Computed example of a mutant assay.
Amino acid sequence: MLILKEKDILELCDWKEIIDVVYDVFERQSNNQTITPHRILINLEAQGADKITGGTYFKPSFVEGVGLGCKVVSVYPDNAKKNLPVVPASIYLADTHTGMPKALLAGTYITGFRTAAGSAVSARIMAKKDAKIMVVFGSGLQAESHILALMTEFPNLEEVIIGCRRMESGNNLLERLKTTYHVSTEKIRLVEGKGDELAAKADIIVTATSSSTPLFNGKVVKPGTHIICVGTASPKDREVDNDAVVNSRVIVDELSSCIVSGDLAAPLEQGVIKESHILGPLGDVLTGKIKARTSPSDITLYKSAGTAIMDIATAHWFTTKATQLNKGLLINDFN
């Protein structure tokens, strides 16, 4: 069994290859080559177990020709006070022919990377090819990953604007981009607040926050904009308002998870939209079953709540890459 730590994931990351891997797995999903049971949530706060505040999801999946495994991801808000990831994760892969353990990967960076890769795939198909201005709301791992993925997919972006609540957190993100990833920040700038003003000028909008209220007025979004909502899957939280949803052609990564996420659950419950307003999954766009954009003026919206097929496919890629480069810790005898 191969064990990969977070530092191994960082060293092995190749954005172009990861984006292509996620593109491929969404195509496989559309072609019925995946099996993904409903995720299981153990919410310790709800159960009142030992006064622990947090919850853990178990997300299994099988991708034909790729791999079999399960992602375990938790949400522990108090971890920030302990200098630990708020969303710790790990991914287990099993040999599809024998069921024996194949790999155990640290999953925090992979979660950020695969989500951003999925968003880059959505933008490849749904955003304007000549997109010039990207606005990213947030300053955490998801914001970081989306800047890296979308700058890879759209190298001709003229400006990347980070909309953050506090300049300190934005500056920390800039520092990580420079020191960890060696990215030139020449065309990246920080803006505190001003959600409506930023959204109005963007060709691509990324919401990567844990906000409980919409970040901007959906009425200000200009025609042709592509909106990417990835920050929260909670039924109570919202990054975009009803106007943004109503005015957009909506695509999701996985319908069952996204319709219980606040961004879509709220307008559905309020009767503002019907479920038919959601055109379908991203994979069906890639295989031509759905047309996400019908005209240059369409506003498109991609909502991602996370799907285990991305985790398994991305973990499989990292495992293969690490084996080729002799990275990680290999345990030869697991019996």
Rank of each mutant, 00 (worst) to 15 (best):
A233I: 01
A208M: 06
F137H: 12
I133N: 11
A116D: 05
L330R: 14
A89M: 03
E168G: 01
G271L: 07
M126K: 02
A80M: 10
R176P: 01
V160A: 05
A46C: 03
K274E: 14
T213Q: 13
Q142D: 02
Q324V: 09
V206M: 07
E159Y: 03
I161F: 00
K16Y: 03
I125P: 00
K321W: 02
I278S: 08
V136G: 09
E269G: 03
I147E: 02
H97L: 12
E11A: 15
M134E: 09
L148R: 15
I331F: 14
A46Q: 15
D203E: 09
A80S: 12
V22T: 05
M310E: 15
F113Y: 15
E275T: 15
S184P: 00
I35F: 13
Q33W: 01
I273D: 12
R249W: 02
V272I: 15
E239G: 06
Y23H: 14
P235Y: 11
I40G: 00
C164H: 01
W15H: 01
V245S: 07
S276E: 15
H277L: 10
E45R: 13
L41C: 10
I40W: 02
E153K: 09
M126Q: 12
R249I: 04
H146C: 04
S122R: 02
P85W: 08
H38E: 13
P281G: 02
D311C: 08
N217T: 12
V272M: 08
N156M: 10
A89P: 02
E175W: 01
K303D: 04
K303I: 07
E175R: 13
G224D: 09
T294W: 11
V75R: 03
L141N: 02
S74P: 09
L215C: 09
D78L: 09
I204Y: 05
Q29Y: 04
A143G: 15
G65F: 02
I19M: 05
E158K: 14
V66A: 00
T96D: 07
S122A: 15
K132R: 14
N171A: 01
I42Q: 05
G67A: 04
C13W: 11
I278H: 10
V25R: 00
V25A: 00
G107L: 06
V250D: 03
L279Q: 12
F58C: 08
R165A: 07
D50P: 00
G69M: 10
D237H: 14
F318W: 05
T207D: 10
E175Y: 07
A202K: 07
A103R: 06
M126P: 01
A127F: 05
Q29V: 11
V21W: 03
L4N: 09
D20Y: 04
G195M: 11
V250K: 03
N43A: 06
T232A: 12
K327A: 11
H277Q: 08
V220F: 10
A106K: 07
N83K: 14
E239L: 04
A103Y: 05
E175M: 08
I278W: 10
Y302W: 07
W317P: 00
K71T: 09
N156E: 15
A233Y: 12
V206H: 05
G55D: 11
Y302I: 07
K194P: 03
G55L: 13
A131S: 15
L2P: 00
R176F: 05
D8V: 06
K178T: 12
A49W: 15
C70H: 01
A292H: 09
Q324E: 15
P214K: 13
A315V: 10
I290G: 04
K7A: 11
G107S: 07
F62A: 12
G65I: 03
